[in-house]
């Protein structure tokens, strides 16, 4: 471990942190928190996508999802391996932690129940992951993570291309386009939430000051919209956001945040809620949280916790 002054000097000189020897306890705490969110998000996407893959239109399409699941578990493994190197008991984290203690975006707690929903998840959620990880890759001060992300980004890009390809196929057919629009309707605002509290409400977490990420929540939300909105417009899909030509930024055209009925997968556009209300929903976790965590942990528990 080093002192806060030495650490900040190191970061100021643009040098990377290669391990705890270059860091302070506070830095390791902030890094640990960030890596847990990243690992949990990658890992929980696997049961979420596997469930949706049961609706795949062909064996080839199913195999493509299995290959994405393979990527996602691999990415999760990278994050947990780095946690292990920081002294965290990664096995306990993955296989013994209570479902409600997992730290991935709430969106994955709402189950994907059709092929349309799966490909929108690829187009929206994997794009969100790509924005976040792209930012980490560009800006992170933690060397091992920066290097690991080259492959991760490449694969995430493939997932979101998969989403775009299938969204295009569905948009070309009037019946399937209705299903696609229905999926977009509930998944678009949920992905807006993915990036977290707006900047003016965000508590200081050390992520920015320690250079663990470069862009703020609102900047990342903008970045996501800057490709997701044009994609939807090109496919003739309605989304509650548009580009303001004067400022060049994206404007959200629905109450944000908004009340969400998670069982019906429906937003109540007439009702704005507070971010405190959203935090309560996130903390309570959503409908598939226990199912997905149990899926991840079942093999281990049959052998260890039995």
């Amino acid at each position: 471990m080093t002192t806060e002054g030495e650490l900040l000097e190191r970061l100021g000189a643009g040098k990377l942190v290669e391990g705890p020897q270059h860091a302070t306890e506070a830095y390791v705490r902030a890094l640990t928190r960030t890596l847990i969110v990243s690992g949990d998000t990658e890992l929980i996407s696997a049961p979420a996508y596997l469930r949706a893959a049961q609706h795949a239109p062909s064996t080839g399409a199913y195999m493509t999802v299995v290959s994405m699941i393979q990527d996602e578990i691999g990415h999760a493994h990278i994050a947990y391996r780095m946690l292990r190197d920081l002294g965290v008991d990664a096995d306990a984290l993955v296989y013994e932690r209570e479902a409600s203690d997992w730290r991935y975006p709430y969106a994955f707690d709402v189950p994907l129940d059709s092929w349309a929903e799966l490909v929108v998840a690829n187009g929206f959620y994997d794009r969100a992951g790509y924005c976040l990880l792209g930012d980490v890759h560009e800006h992170t001060s933690y060397g091992p993570w920066k290097r690991a992300l080259v492959k991760v980004e490449y694969e995430e890009n493939f997932h979101l291309r998969h989403g775009e390809r299938w969204m295009g196929i569905y948009a070309a057919d009037p019946d399937r386009k209705r299903d696609l629009q229905a999926a977009v309707d509930w998944m678009f605002p949920l992905t807006l939430e993915w990036f977290g509290l707006p900047d003016h409400l965000k508590r200081h977490s050390g992520q920015l000051s320690y250079g663990l990420k470069g862009r703020s929540n609102d900047e990342l939300r903008q970045r996501w919209m800057s490709t997701a909105v044009p994609l939807c417009e090109k496919l003739g899909l309605d989304v509650p956001a548009h580009r303001d030509e004067a400022t060049g930024t994206y404007v959200i055209d629905c109450p944000f945040p908004m009340a969400f009925d998670e069982e019906a997968k429906r937003w109540d556009t007439s009702r704005a809620v507070s971010w405190d209300d959203v935090m309560v929903r996130w903390k309570a976790r959503g409908p598939a949280n226990e199912e997905f965590v149990a899926k991840v942990q079942r093999g281990y528990k049959q052998l260890v916790a039995a």
């Binding site: 299995v66 578990i73 079942r298």
Partner: peptide, 21 residues
């Protein structure tokens, strides 16, 4: 493939997905 998620070791889950394909 259904056990790519749920293998008792993460690396094994990755390999199970590959083997299933």
């Amino acid at each position: 493939s259904e056990w790519a998620v749920g293998a008792p070791v993460l690396e094994t889950g990755v390999a199970t997905a590959a083997i299933a394909q």
